[in-house]
């Protein structure tokens, strides 16, 4: 356990050291809240509900976007891809430390710093702008929300690692990855709740894994998804998680093989 802790703390130090890139990520997230908060305020003018959201639910969704982006979408796979492409990964593979464990610690460090920062931002915004927040009526919601969130984190981890393994085959994985990331952000509801979209998009997205990352946990928190829909959502999460574990393992193995066949 000690060595993973070391990787974790080293990453935090690095994170603070590279505070510029950290700040950038935060700035990006903050501008998204500002823009969408203002937009939805303008949309809500004089209404109590829209798209089945009350005011407080909608604004909680927007602030929640910021927190969940920080917690779910933060990762260090850009670094991983870089390590694969530069061959630096070999030195990790030779050490007596599981590379996946190492990556997990590194991700955890990233998530921890981003999360603390985003909670502070959201608290500040809610206080300054007197944003009405929604709190779940049933204590059990917190537990279910925690579960869906944990599954979301696992899912994102698996997905980003699957995409990162493409770096084993090509040094040109940065662009496709950018495309994937943007698609993922939109279709997970990290810019706006998916309920806005026409029904056809919604039904497609409800079966894709992306909505499970952000839209689904947030709506569980807002108690807009309960009962059978909740069960179905959890089922979708688990289904994709299992599939991705299998895919990630296979791709990772094959990737390593292709990588060592090239002579690194």
């Amino acid at each position: 356990m000690g060595k993973y802790w070391a990787a974790f703390s080293l990453s935090i130090q690095q994170e603070l050291y590279y505070r510029a890139s950290f700040l950038m990520e935060r700035a990006r997230s903050i501008t998204v809240i500002i823009a969408f908060y203002a937009f939805w305020s303008a949309v809500f003018q004089g209404r109590d509900t829209l798209l089945g959201y009350t005011r407080s639910q909608m604004f909680t969704y927007i602030l929640g976007m910021n927190v969940l982006r920080a917690l779910v979408f933060s990762d260090k796979t850009w670094e991983l891809m870089h390590e694969i492409n530069t061959g630096k990964i070999s030195s990790y593979l030779m050490r007596p430390i599981s590379y996946v464990g190492f990556c997990l610690s590194r991700d955890a460090a990233d998530k921890a710093t981003q999360l603390v920062s985003s909670i502070l931002e959201v608290a500040l915004a809610a206080w300054l702008l007197k944003i009405p927040l929604y709190w779940p009526a049933h204590p059990a919601t917190f537990a279910v929300f925690g579960l869906t969130l944990a599954l979301a984190i696992v899912l994102y981890f698996l997905m980003s690692y699957i995409v990162a393994t493409f770096a084993f085959w090509t040094s040109e994985s940065a662009g496709p990855r950018f495309c994937f990331e943007l698609f993922l952000e939109f279709s997970s509801g990290a810019f706006f709740p998916l309920d806005v979209l026409p029904r056809i998009f919604q039904s497609v997205f409800s079966f894709l894994p992306f909505a499970s990352l952000l839209y689904f946990p947030l709506n569980v928190f807002l108690e807009r998804i309960t009962g059978p829909l909740l069960a179905r959502g959890l089922g979708v999460q688990v289904f994709w998680a299992v599939l991705f574990v299998w895919a990630a393992r296979r791709l990772w193995e094959r990737g390593l093989k292709a990588y060592s066949a090239d002579g690194g």
Binding site: L50, S173, G175, P176, C179, F180, F186, L197
Partner: peptide, 28 residues
Amino acid sequence: WSSLGWLGGKFVRLAFFILFIVSIFRHV
């Protein structure tokens, strides 16, 4: 391939924003 990915990403962003703007006006 990388360039195609960047281009694709930019198109995705443009398309989703337009979709968002058009969709919201179905409700307000």
